[in-house]
Design a protein around this nucleic acid. Structure first.
Lengths: 249, 249
DNA sequence: TAATGATGTGCAATATTTTGCAGTTTTAAT
DNA sequence: ATTAAAACTGCAAAATATTGCACATCATTA
């Protein structure tokens, strides 16, 4: 077994599933975990994947989650994701918009859960495909290259035909009094359509984004059913949000 | 045993399996490992393969950064992709269905080319997003988990609104007389919709699939404008296809 | 033919790389 | 806080690479 063959297989696996576990590869290839770890370290220095604790993830994934938001933010997003999945019940129909926090949420949906999932994000769709019991529906539209999220008239039109139990969205900026805002007009349109298409809208956001504003308003705080942050609902920073009537988790 | 003979055999082996072990070659040719090593060193400097610890791998193998397709077929698919992109002109509207051959095609679209690209495949959409001058539109629908391709009524309905210059599709099976077939009914429906939505339909297929059939018929050969394989259009195997009127490339 | 030199080949000694293991430290989850 | 999983470290064994050298082969030239 040549080292290059192992590298090839690891890269294939990463390309296909966005991540690998060292232990899995070691078992399949019948080599020690140490060897696989060394392989992954080399591939990491060659910038062909990103090594993480326990395995490796694709650069595409790392770029979408880890780079602009530092490693410490991943942890926060994981906390948020864990809280968010607890809202889900078997049989629910949900819409997941896009962004790094929603991606983390999608990853944390339990394997055994059966849901109907609509999404607008290519990375999230791929993530959802890994869960055997989900029905995955992509709401088509023009793809924004950086975010890999569908938007435009077609996306909004498709959303208008849905009545989901939950809509999960992120936001660029959120202010207790002024509501949710974005830098980008297209995002505002689509997120609004998600809100309209959902009985309950769940906002997933790390606390850094609290009390900030930008150009275009997505919605008022009162349009949000539940806001999930990595903080305890009793945290001081959340004080202003308590009086808006939004559920804090 | 001439050196050239050994070189030829080593290159054959690499072409076939993408890798060789020095020890194996030495045994087969009944020469010392040292000799084989020197041969491989020479072939490496001649850029005909890549020498690695313990053996050698093909250049394609060494260069790629994570292919999803099986290594043995990737070279053929690359040849097909290179031929296919030559059909494209700036400003074209194209539909790319899905599958590994189409994915390779998407990867080979030149950076500087400006096109409007519709697709039904998540991996292809992500690939297209890397090209700065493309407009990428995902045709929504229910995602098949294994293939990560959208299908179902929504996909077909969206396709019905398109009039593209080219539709690029792969196929599971193709027979000169019987036409294109699939194992899967959903695929048949969607591919048909792609064909209807395109002025010209281009079939991308490796020669292995020629002269094979399966359960459901996608279309007749006469519905295909151009068939691209990795072979020369004059190849013997393509004889039966010449009388169908399809363009062979 | 014989001498010459260039090249190819195998062998053996030595150096380097790769790999797995065991013990310790760090990280993550409960 | 406790526990389990994973990472890191150093080390030794095995596999492979490198090097120098001896010898064989073969073409060229005297």
């Amino acid at each position: 077994m040549l080292k290059e063959e192992r590298h090839q297989l690891i890269l294939n696996e990463v390309a296909l599933h966005n991540r690998v576990l060292l232990a899995d590869i070691a078992e399949v290839l019948n080599v020690s975990v140490d060897t696989v770890r060394r392989d992954v370290i080399q591939l990491d220095t060659e910038k062909k994947l990103k090594k993480v604790h326990g395995g490796a993830v694709s650069l595409a994934y790392a770029n979408n989650t880890g780079e602009q938001t530092k490693v410490y933010a991943i942890e926060k997003k994981r906390i948020i994701a864990k809280k968010a999945v607890q809202l889900l019940r078997n049989g629910n129909i949900i819409i997941i918009h896009g962004g790094t926090t929603c991606l983390e949420f999608a990853r944390n949906i339990p394997e055994k859960m059966s849901l109907t999932c609509f999404t607008l994000s290519l990375p999230i769709a791929i993530e959802l495909c890994k869960k055997p019991k989900l029905e995955v529906i992509f709401l088509g539209g023009t793809i924004a290259k950086e975010s890999q999220i569908a938007s435009g008239g077609q996306a909004i039109h498709n959303l208008s035909k849905i009545n989901a139990d939950y809509g999960f969205i992120g936001t660029g900026y959120v202010d207790a009094n002024y509501g949710l805002t974005e830098f980008d007009w297209e995002s505002v349109q689509v997120k609004n359509a998600v809100i309209q298409a959902s009985k309950n809208t769940v906002l997933l956001t790390i606390s850094e984004k609290l009390n900030s504003k930008n150009r275009y308003k997505t919605c008022e705080m009162s349009d949000i059913t539940t806001m999930i942050t990595e903080l305890e609902p009793t945290a001081n920073i959340l004080e202003d949000f308590r009086i808006t009537g939004v559920d804090l988790v």
